[in-house]
Design a protein around this nucleic acid. Structure first.
Lengths: 217, 217
DNA sequence: TAGATTGTTAATCGATTAACAATC
DNA sequence: TAGATTGTTAATCGATTAACAATC
């Protein structure tokens, strides 16, 4: 049974980066790549690259490196990118539009099958060629279509209620862009894409670099 | 000199989460919060909360907890959120529009002062009330305005060139939404907001949960 | 073969968790 | 005071880094 061979969390976060770099190497016509080269291009230590990759594949060839085609496919399998994941997106604002319109996610198996909003002005319209439905229909539709992934791009105040609805409809994974910590049952996975938090860490570093501000504080 | 009292990276990632939760507590009218309560609301262990907070402030009161007003302000100071950061955004697509239009970043000191694109159709138009300028002017304008932060929302292929221009214009921190690993001098900080990578980790977990897929593989 | 690079072990490093005396 | 909660130390845990024999 999968899941028992559990993989370290930091490793899991790096695997998609390797995957992306490998795809780019392949497009550049490369056939093999060494752990050093992969590390250089992805910003990680070469020993770490080897250790990470060994969690999923031990097909590297001493003296040669990793066969890009095979490793790429192996990573895609491992990450589940070959499966198509149907998702419901709630929140037809600008961020929702950006996510729904981005073609790149298709290569990661994401298929946004329905878009919801609570604004009567938006309901009935479209978002990237998908009809915008009333959020009242979310539970029913998600359940009927067997949707397992939910994407939340609503304002902070509305996010918890949307998450609750998703959970009750059987959604198992939530990609949350609302700036709140969602409370969900522990069998539901939430990934917070907290942009403001990312911004704050940059802000911290800029402050550290700024001689004037530092002199004053 | 700041920077020498360096803070663990995982802690730095959690501080903005505490900050956000604290702001929400304050809005809810609370005055004090304990490490347990803060932990519960942000998803971290209470001992970890105390340890993290002690890096920046030892003003917690045994038996009472932390005074929300003081801790919030202390965190904002530490993270540099009280400073206004002027930023240049390059890439006036949907994601750029979402970021430029999001009011919430203002509370984090972000001030997008200029928007650039390479598409002649877009140049001369506006994005959230800001004129869209030719990317050819990026270096000149960033330098003249002393811009220290760059936001990249261009397609992967164009991102490295934009980063190079930013670096040459004196930008010190780059918020990168393009799905590439940027190569920059080590004195420039890059934060990759790699949405596809986040998606991939969700995809992995869904695959792990799926009995049918697992049976087949 | 000689050179390069893997897979893996052992050593180091750092972060999390548990526990509790100090204190509000 | 009694109850609650902090700040901090010590113990545990896990991840990174270094090193090298195996091997292409």
């Amino acid at each position: 049974m999968a899941g028992l061979v559990s993989i370290p969390k930091p490793t899991l976060e790096r695997l998609p980066v390797y995957y992306r770099v490998l795809v780019q190497c392949r497009e550049a016509g490369m056939q093999y790549v060494s752990s050093s080269e992969l590390g250089r291009r992805s910003g990680f230590d070469n020993a770490q690259v080897r250790k990470d990759l060994n969690h999923i594949w031990s097909g590297g060839r001493p003296g040669l490196g990793y066969e890009i085609d095979k490793l790429t496919s192996c990573l895609a399998d491992f990450l589940g990118l070959h499966n198509t994941t149907d998702a419901a997106l709630v929140g037809a604002g600008r961020l929702g539009a950006a996510l729904a319109g981005y073609q790149g996610f298709a290569g990661y198996g994401l298929n946004i099958v329905a878009v919801f909003d609570s604004d009567p002005e938006k309901i009935g319209g479209t978002l990237s060629e998908r009809p915008i439905l009333s959020v009242d229909k979310l539970a029913d539709i998600a359940e009927r279509l067997g949707i397992r992934m939910g994407i939340i791009t609503v304002p902070a105040k509305a996010a918890q209620a949307v998450a609750d609805t998703m959970v009750s409809a059987g959604v198992q994974a939530i990609w949350n862009f609302a700036p709140v910590c969602l409370q969900v049952p522990k069998n539901v996975l939430v990934r917070n894409e907290d942009l403001a938090a990312g911004l704050a860490t940059l802000s911290y570093h800029l402050k550290e670099l700024d001689p004037l501000t530092n002199a004053m504080s």
